[in-house]
């Protein structure tokens, strides 16, 4: 009640201001032109803060980032506040480092494996949830819990799960007799990468499941019925009717998956910190390690910029796919 009246009052006051503003040009210009002028002015005034903000906190840092990647920015540069220009040296040094190559390979594997697994499992869940059954509504709610929680929490939980002693993963595998000696999930490079993938898949499944569930609900039942009447099996109905109908949703879920998986940082920092022996570095964590713990801000930003190019390329594909009229993003 109060909220509405306040809102109205505010609205009236603001409207009054606008009228007073618009009253002036009206004297000199034909009324319609004046109002259009006023309208443009107000709209631009609405828009400018957002552009200034993005310019100040996104575009300017991006520019600075590129500059730093061409500088020798280490201990001395931090003390002086600027570093000497070194051309492509940071990029060369970065690419000569085996860890960078490993980080790029890990990032590609991590992204593709995560997106594929999230999608398949998420789709299966969506199909499962697409029927009404006792508890289905509750299930649809509760599966979002992993999705809303901070990835740092997810990473912490999985560091306990993958602990070599008393971790859930080893307990379960031991319990069903698959292993006899505890597996060092986080002490071998390949298993550490696998652990990060599993963690990220766990965190990403709900998002895929819910989006695909929404898409499933938009498939017209008449079409499925028609196919059924034509004698199509459930699997045929799924592949020949449901999937084609959901194509746009599927493309968006996959592309968003790629864009957001490329960015993943929290999980790897918390779970493995890129270790052991830098074997599980992703480009994001490697950029961080170089810049913020090894004091190589120049090479760190060089790695970060390669990641940026990857992300933007995927972003372009995404934008093209969604025909520029998409509103989209979702967390991750």
């Amino acid at each position: 009640m109060t909220a509405t009246t306040t809102q109205q009052a505010l609205g009236e006051r603001a409207g009054g201001v606008a009228e007073r503003l618009s009253a002036r040009p009206r004297r000199f210009l034909p009324p319609r032109l004046g109002r259009r002028y006023e309208r443009r002015f107000a709209l631009v005034a609405f828009l400018v803060p957002s552009l200034v903000y993005v310019g100040l906190f996104v575009a300017y840092p991006l520019y600075r980032d590129i500059v730093i990647s061409f500088q020798n920015y280490g201990f001395s540069a931090l003390a002086a506040g600027h570093g000497p220009f070194v051309g492509l040296a940071n990029y060369r040094q970065m690419l000569n480092d085996g860890t960078t190559i490993r980080a790029i390979a890990n990032t590609v594997v991590f992204t593709l494996a995560s997106v594929a697994a999230q999608f398949v499992i998420g789709f299966a869940m969506a199909v499962y949830l697409n029927r009404q059954f006792a508890g289905s509504a509750f299930l649809r709610r509760i599966i979002l819990v992993p999705w809303v929680m901070p990835l740092v929490v997810t990473g912490t939980i999985f560091s306990l799960i993958f602990a070599s002693t008393n971790g859930l993963a080893n307990e379960v595998l031991h319990g069903i007799g698959l292993v006899h000696k505890p597996i060092g999930w986080l002490t071998s490079g390949d298993l550490a990468v696998l652990s990060i993938v599993v963690t990220n898949v766990w965190a990403g499944i709900p998002f895929n499941a819910i989006l695909l569930f929404s898409g499933l609900q938009d498939v017209p039942p008449e079409q499925l019925e028609a196919a059924s009447v034509d004698g199509a099996s459930p699997w045929q109905r799924f592949t020949r009717v449901t999937v084609p109908m959901m194509r746009p949703v599927i493309m968006i879920v996959l592309m968003l998956g790629v864009v957001y998986t490329l960015k993943v940082f929290d999980i790897v920092i918390v779970l493995t910190n890129g270790g052991p022996a830098n074997e599980s570095q992703l480009m994001s964590s490697w950029a961080y390690t170089q810049a913020f713990s090894d004091f190589q801000l120049g090479t760190g930003t060089a790695v970060a910029n390669i990641l940026l190019v990857f992300s933007l390329l995927c972003g372009v594909v995404y934008v093209l796919l969604s025909r520029g009229d998409n509103t989209g993003r979702a967390r991750r």
Partner: peptide, 23 residues
């Protein structure tokens, strides 16, 4: 403008963090 805003959503936060740190 919408395109620009969309692009900002693609940028990994870590890609600007060094620059943000110095700024």
């Amino acid at each position: 403008v919408v395109m620009v805003m969309l692009v900002t959503q693609m940028i990994p936060a870590i890609s600007v963090s060094v620059a943000l740190y110095t700024i």
